Amino acid sequence: MKNKIGLIALFALFFGLCQSTFAQDVSRKDQAAKAITDTMQVELTLNDDQYKKVYDINEQFLTKLGGIKQEGGGKLAKLQKLKAADQERNAALKPILTDEQYKKFQEFKKERREEMKEKYKNSKS
C-alpha cells in the first residue's frame, strides 16, 4: 500500500511539473521536457551527449504520461500504466547514465516521492 501511495505521489509530481504538457501543445511539452532535463543536468552533472539523450527520453516519457491521462479507465489501470512508463524510462536512462548518476537519479526520485507524500498528508489535515 505504501508503494502505491509513493508511486501515485511520484506521478503526481510529474503531472504537477508538466501539467501544461497534456494540452498537446508541442512547445509546452518541449518546455516541460527541458525543465526536467535541466534539473537532471544540475542534479546528475550530465555531459552534452547525455543531456541530448536524456531530453529525448523525457520527451517520450511526457508524451506517454499525457496519453495515459487522456485515456479512460480506472485509477488502478492508470497507475499500472504510469508505473510501466516509469520503468521504461528507467530502463532507457540506465545505459546512458553512469552507475553513480543512476543511483543519484533514483535517490532524487525517492526524495520527490517523500515530499509529495508529506504534501498529501498535510493537505488531508
Rank of each mutant, 00 (worst) to 15 (best):
L10Q: 02
Y51I: 05
K4I: 08
S20C: 07
Q60P: 01
K124Q: 15
R112N: 10
K4M: 08
N90Q: 15
Y120C: 06
M40L: 15
Q70R: 12
K69C: 03
S123H: 10
E43T: 08
K75C: 07
K2S: 09
Q80P: 00
L13F: 12
E71R: 13
Y55F: 14
E100H: 07
R113Y: 04
E100V: 08
K121D: 15
M1H: 08
E118M: 14
V26I: 12
Q31M: 06
I57L: 07
Q87P: 03
K121L: 14
Y55E: 02
K110R: 13
I36L: 14
K69A: 09
K119W: 05
K109V: 12
F11I: 07
Q60Y: 01
K121T: 15
N90S: 13
Q41P: 03
R89G: 02
D49E: 13
M40I: 09
D25R: 07
I68R: 00
F14I: 12
T98K: 12
Q41E: 11
A9F: 03
D38E: 14
E114F: 09
F61W: 03
L82W: 01
T63D: 05
M116P: 01
E100N: 08
L65G: 00
L79M: 13
D99W: 06
L97S: 04
G72D: 07
E118T: 15
G72L: 08
K34W: 03
Y120M: 09
S20E: 15
Q106M: 14
P95F: 09
I96R: 02
G73N: 10
N122I: 11
N58P: 00
S123W: 09
I57C: 04
T98N: 14
K104Q: 15
A23N: 11
L7N: 09
V42W: 05
A35N: 06
L93F: 06
E115V: 15
N47G: 10
L13M: 12
R89K: 15
K94T: 11
R113T: 15
A32T: 00
D49G: 14
L93V: 06
M1A: 09
L65A: 00
M1G: 10
K117M: 09
K124E: 07
E59K: 06
A35P: 02
E111F: 12
I5R: 03
K109N: 10
V42D: 11
K124L: 11
A33L: 02
A12N: 12
Q70P: 03
K94F: 02
K2D: 13
K53D: 08
E111T: 14
G73D: 05
L44K: 00
D38F: 04
A12H: 06
A23C: 05
K2T: 14
M116S: 05
K119Q: 11
K121E: 14
E59Q: 04
N58W: 01
Q106K: 14
D38Q: 14
L97R: 06
